[in-house]
Simulated scan of single mutants.
Amino acid sequence: MVVRDETVFAHTPYDGSRQPFTIGLAPLDLKDWIEPDHHFEAHLAEKERLFENAVAPVFLAEADTVPAQGEVLGLLLEHLPRRFPDVYSVSGGAVTLLASGRRYEFADFGGRPLLLAAKLVQEDLVIMRKGEGGYRLVAAALAFPSSWSLAEKFGRSMPEIHEGVPGFNDGRMGPVVARIFDNLAVDRPVWRLNWSLYSDPELHHPMPKQIDLRVTDTSLPGLHVRVERQTLRRLPGSGNILFTIKIHHDPVAAFAAHPEGARLALGLRRQLLELTPEQLAYKALCHARARIAEDLLRLAESCGKSSKQELAAAK
């Protein structure tokens, strides 16, 4: 099992290494395709609960996507035991999660192989298929949405899915993404990161996001930075595109224990202050930005690891 220290954040795109509201794709080494961490058991247990009891749909698929779903499951069953032999075992028509002993029979998921695939990994899984209006969302196991509804987006094209995202349909991003999808080669998967802020630690957010000022007014303890790690790869048989979406949901207050906490707090503050009014509204931070920026500066000062020049520049 790949386990990381809870005080060392896995991905920090807000440190200046990425810019928000940009495509920011990088080549993906397939050995790093799936990313289990110390939340593995908790996240999979939450997925099981949601697949059984969620009010908002967390699994939807068009009937003719079963072969593509099977491709996804096949790729995972090939990759996971080889990359993580202490976590997965595949034999006798079943896959077993070794830590928990949970065993899934393939025959039980003949009509929904993507659901089984999603039960094996922390990542959510989304299949996009090209149609007359571009690539559409045709199947998804989406337990941990970041403020969007699978029911509303299902069957829709990329422009429709990203309606309201600043710069996507009213700028260059949408056409560039369409070209990337068209040109994505089977042997050239890619990945990207984005971040947002939430005032609770919940993973399942199917409703539009609102920062709770009652939390942010009491400083940072309730605030979480949510990073999505997305990978894209073309399925070799169907030609569909698979998104994986891994959620890292970390308390901002944990910067205090991070060796680079001051730098991360200042980086997040800088990107927060640089957001345009449209971007700020999309992230639901219009009313909370000033207070969060103040708190991040105080946090950086308390870490005591920033240079005087960095703090002076931040002020």
Rank of each mutant, 00 (worst) to 15 (best):
E62M: 05
V66G: 05
F40R: 11
H11D: 02
L80P: 03
E62Y: 02
H39P: 11
L75P: 11
P67A: 01
D108Y: 13
T96A: 07
W33C: 06
W33E: 06
D15F: 00
G101M: 02
H43C: 12
F109S: 10
A68C: 05
G92W: 08
N53T: 07
P27C: 06
A99S: 10
Y88T: 09
L75K: 04
S91N: 14
F51L: 14
A42M: 08
N53E: 09
R82N: 04
R102G: 05
K31L: 08
A99C: 10
D86H: 07
G110T: 12
G74I: 00
P20F: 05
V58L: 04
A68N: 09
I34R: 06
N53V: 00
F84G: 12
W33D: 03
H11C: 03
D108N: 15
S100R: 02
A26C: 08
V58S: 08
H79V: 04
D29E: 01
T22W: 01
L30W: 03
L30T: 05
I23C: 07
Q19K: 13
A56T: 02
L44V: 07
D86R: 15
R103K: 13
S17C: 04
E6P: 14
R82W: 06
E71F: 08
A56E: 02
N53A: 05
R49P: 09
K47R: 07
T96E: 08
P20Q: 13
L77H: 06
Y88S: 14
H38I: 12
S100P: 00
D108I: 12
L80E: 09
R102S: 09
A42G: 05
R83I: 01
D86F: 07
G16C: 10
E41T: 11
L25Y: 10
E6D: 07
G111A: 15
F51I: 07
H39L: 13
F9N: 12
R83S: 00
A26L: 11
L75G: 10
V58K: 01
G101W: 01
